[in-house]
Amino acid sequence: MTLAPSVRTAFLPTGKLRASLNLGNPILVKRDAATGQPFGVSVDLANEFARRLGVEVEQVVFDTAGQSVEAVADGRADIGFFAVDPARGANIAFTAPYVLIEGYYLVHDESAIRHNAQVDTAAHRVAVGKGSAYDLFLTRELRHAQIVRARSSPAVVQTFLEQQLEVAAGVKQQLEAAAALNPGLRLLDERFMVIQQAMGTPVSRGEAAAHYLREFIEEMKSSGFVAAALARHGIQGALIAPAG
């Protein structure tokens, strides 16, 4: 990959690479309990991209996907890591996805809901993380069920339990962990969406910068960097996205 000086300048208006990180998706970012520092696949990618640019990373950390997206969209961050969605595309230039994550429904054991098609009725309330990829998707897809927005993705199951809702929607691994900690819950047996995790940069940085970022992600997939990062952080169930 050839880095033109103009492209490097486009990514670095402050002299550092400001990377927007979303703690609401523990598949890609977590906070170290001892140091408080974020770590994970997104952090590894940000560090490698900064190394290519020859600068330091300035981590801009948020609790929700919506906040993380807004930081990139309005130029407070230079790159970000989030799911591709049409609602986010006006101000953000996305790469192809580098990881695919499955979205699932969680219900109570005694629930009559057995299949995804049974969720969308007026009698059902579905907990989602506000501004998450599955919030955006289900807002478009559900015609009858009521969407109840938790403050963040990690708070979805708590909202589901406290408000005695019928369904919780979220990342499969998060819901599996919640079901293991809360007897009496079960996942439905099929995903309702595939969440395409990608990198993005503000559209205002120009097409050359967006192209360079897309090439970077393709190299990170083909070289095994993403696969190694997933293995290093013990992430299971996430799939490497195919070549873009």
Rank of each mutant, 00 (worst) to 15 (best):
P5L: 10
P13D: 05
R18Q: 02
N25Y: 00
L28T: 08
K30G: 00
K30W: 00
R31S: 11
P38L: 07
S42V: 06
A46E: 02
A46C: 10
A50L: 08
G54E: 13
E58Q: 15
V60G: 00
F62K: 12
T64N: 10
A65N: 11
G66D: 09
V69E: 13
P86V: 11
A90F: 00
I92E: 06
A93K: 09
A96W: 07
P97R: 14
Y98C: 02
L100P: 07
I101W: 05
R114D: 15
R114V: 13
N116D: 13
Q118W: 03
V119L: 11
A122L: 05
A127P: 12
G129Q: 04
S132V: 02
D135M: 08
L138A: 11
T139I: 01
A145K: 05
I147N: 04
I147R: 14
R151I: 15
A155S: 14
Q164V: 06
V167Y: 04
G170N: 05
L175I: 07
E176I: 05
L187H: 06
L188F: 11
M193E: 07
V203M: 01
R205G: 00
G206V: 01
A208S: 07
A210S: 08
H211F: 02
E218L: 01
M220P: 04
S223N: 06
I235G: 04
I235V: 13
G237I: 10
G244V: 06
